[in-house]
Amino acid sequence: MQATIEVNGLRKRFGAALALDGMTFTVRPGQVTGFVGPNGAGKSTTMRVILALDAPDAGTALVAGKPYASIRRPMSVIGSLLDAGALQPSRSARNHLLWLAHSQGLTAKRVDEVIEQAGLEKVAKRHAGGYSLGMRQRLGIAAAMLGNPAAIMLDEPFNGMDPEGIVWMRGFLRALAAQGRAVLVSSHLMSELQDTADHLVVVGRGKVIADTTVASLLAAASGDRVTLRTVARPEAAAVLEAAGATVAVTGWDVLTVSGLPAERIVAVLSEKAVPFSEVSAHRATLEQAYMELTRDAVEFRPAGSFAEPADGGEEVSR
């Protein structure tokens, strides 16, 4: 089964607010697709539309080539976790999984398997109301895995997890992708996805801003600039410009060099005996790349903060 999620031209309006504005992307099997964007970008709405919980005003969402609502036992096709807190507090975790299993015609045996996978054996008989958020996330993952689906869709699974849980979650998602499953994980923090996602769908204001691999997003954000720290600034600039680079002064003892790779810069400076204390290739973090992309899409920014001077001028970082 080609287990993909295909979202095409979704539009949805909640009263005056346009939640989805032509959302279009595809989730492929065998990789973790990060679904990132600021709060209010339409990630959760998109996921609800994919699960046929919300009806879009326009557009389609297909899972394994079919509308979700037409799938007979959907949890065997796609597992999902939208809200880890959606639990009846007085029902035990095992009974929660058991009713879900029964709705799919699955047995209690399968329930015990996913309880073990999620590491919930010791607490499965306890009331879910007493679970920490991290435990609820694990319970939600267990529920998503019940039908052993070829696609998994998780909304903010890292929320409320302790560091140990985050490590577990990352490994778990990598393993699912390695098994050939399609994994779609949303987050409003790019850092959570840094070492997890292969592919990124960056969204803002209800539509896709970037649909790319992690590697190419980083390359685009980094450019080929090199930072040079030297006490002999004029000499270094002259030597490097002679070698064909473009040099800009960016600090008292700092030059930013472009047009030459770091190895060549080191070689040229050494040859001419120009002293320098540091040569570093400028490498943007995923977070920086993401901030660049989504700057215009952030719905709510603190007014008058340091990030946005009161004179309305360019932001400091630009």
């Binding site: 699960l51 046929a52 919980l53 939208l82 009846q88 709705s103």
Partner: peptide
């Protein structure tokens, strides 16, 4: 509890 979404996702 929002559990209705879990229910309707399991059975559309």
């Amino acid at each position: 509890r929002g559990l209705i979404r879990t229910t309707l996702a399991a059975t559309p």
